[in-house]
Design a binder for these strands. Structure first.
Length: 272
DNA sequence: ATGACTGTTGGTAACAGA
């Protein structure tokens, strides 16, 4: 089974890259993030024409996550149980605070006997932003939701985690002092997910012996290979990984996302 | 090349991304 995760940074803008990529890579299950469209605007017909069933969770301008599968798509969930809602801060002069919203950041489905999640973990923005405790609460809630699923059978949790697991996963940790994505709290939350019984599937090293998955559009960061490894695949150990790589080609050329896909080949061990 | 972004929107400037 070939699985992949890709933050496409708008599925609409990325369609000329996504469709040929699906044909060439031929993954069985694909997790997309930042589709940035409502369900009605998702290119269902064009993706389904390539043999995929689609579960998309979109709320328009921001976020948006999806699972594409050609090995079945059952028990779809458009949020994980107990997924924390984003509560916008009250505006000055407005008596009632805005309603909290469960953002379109997660899609779960069972495909080919494996439970999959496509996740777009909140960015956090800054350590003193309310988005940062939201990120940590979201990850803690995710752990609670995943615990019974990981205990029950094979699980693959993949997506844009917005966390660099180790200092080696950013181009220069000195550039991240005081920033999100590298804090002990975020890394502990990620480690707590793995403690449930999930393995961080490391892609083959890329340029510079790293396997970055994201490079800022600006300042030639990609060509200087100044990136981050923040798109992750966490898999149950019963799923044997035969290969894993970052598709850097998808980050090149005309109109790329700022993230590259992570592709993993795995074999479900049977009879044990 | 000593500089270099891209996407969305009751949109054309503001904001988010990481």
């Amino acid at each position: 089974m070939r699985v992949a995760t890709w933050n496409v940074n708008s599925v609409g803008a990325r369609l000329p890259r996504l469709l040929p990529w699906l044909e060439e890579t031929a993954p069985d299950v694909v997790a997309l993030q930042e589709t940035k469209c409502a369900d009605a605007a998702f290119p269902h017909a064009q993706v389904e024409a390539l043999g995929y069933e689609v579960a998309h969770n979109g709320d328009g301008r921001w976020n948006g996550s999806a699972l594409l599968s050609r090995v079945g798509l059952d028990d779809v969930a458009l949020a994980f149980p107990g997924q924390p809602a984003w509560a916008p801060p009250a505006e000055e002069g407005v008596l009632l605070p805005p309603e909290p919203v469960v953002e379109a950041r997660a899609v779960g489905a069972t495909c080919g006997g494996v439970r999959f999640w496509s996740l777009y973990v909140p960015n956090g923005r800054a350590l003193d932003s309310p988005h940062y405790p939201y990120k940590l609460a979201w990850l803690a809630g995710l752990r609670e939701a995943l615990a019974p699923e990981v205990a029950a059978g094979p699980v693959v949790v993949m997506g844009d985690f917005n966390i660099a697991p180790a200092d080696e996963d950013v181009w220069d940790v000195r550039s991240f002092v005081g920033s999100t994505h590298v804090t002990p709290e975020e890394r502990r939350a990620l480690a707590a997910l793995q403690d449930l019984g999930l393995v961080d599937v490391r892609a083959r090293p890329g340029k510079g012996d790293r396997a970055y998955t994201y490079w800022d559009y600006r300042a030639g960061m990609f060509h200087k290979d100044l990136g981050m490894r923040i798109d992750l695949v966490l898999a149950s150990p019963s799923l044997a990984v035969t290969d894993a790589w970052v598709d850097r080609e998808a980050r090149k050329g005309k109109g790329p996302s700022d993230h590259a896909p992570v592709v993993v080949d795995l074999v479900q061990e049977s009879g044990l």
